[in-house]
């Protein structure tokens, strides 16, 4: 009986270790975190450079009013509200220069509110 219990304990411990090593949560270093502040009528920073294949977390905030975040090249949209952080995570899978913009009308100048993501190899 004692041998069986030791065997069960060993198997469950082994499975636990295996599960931990194969499904561990991404480390902070795995994701490039970039904070972006939206305000009438720009994003700061307005230009971001990232590497292809490296996950990116955009932390979006607004310093004045509600804005939108539209990034059709990566099929991303989000609402940016003052006092809140909206987190958008994605992995750039292609290189090039891509434009994101505000898609919630915010006044005269709204149509110029855009930023650029540069993805390099």
């Amino acid at each position: 009986m004692k041998r069986i219990m030791i065997l069960v304990l060993a198997i469950t411990t082994g499975l636990g270790v295996l599960a931990y090593t194969t499904h561990s949560a991404p480390q902070a270093d795995d994701v490039k975190v970039i904070s972006i502040t939206a305000k009438k009528f720009d994003f700061t920073p307005g230009e971001i450079t990232v590497k292809k294949g490296v996950p990116v977390a955009l932390e979006l905030t607004s310093s004045d009013r509600v804005h939108g975040f539209s990034f059709p090249d990566f099929k991303l949209t989000a609402k940016i509200e003052p006092g809140k952080v909206t987190r958008v995570v994605f992995t750039p899978d292609k290189t090039g220069e891509f434009t994101f913009s505000c898609n919630i009308f915010c006044g005269s100048g709204h149509e110029e509110m855009a930023g650029r993501l540069i993805v390099t190899d």
């Binding site: 939108g68 539209s70 059709p72 913009s101 505000c102 898609n103 919630i104 009308f105 149509e111």
Partner: peptide, 9 residues
Amino acid sequence: WGRLLSDQD
């Protein structure tokens, strides 16, 4: 305009 305006707009 779908890229610049929300559906609500």
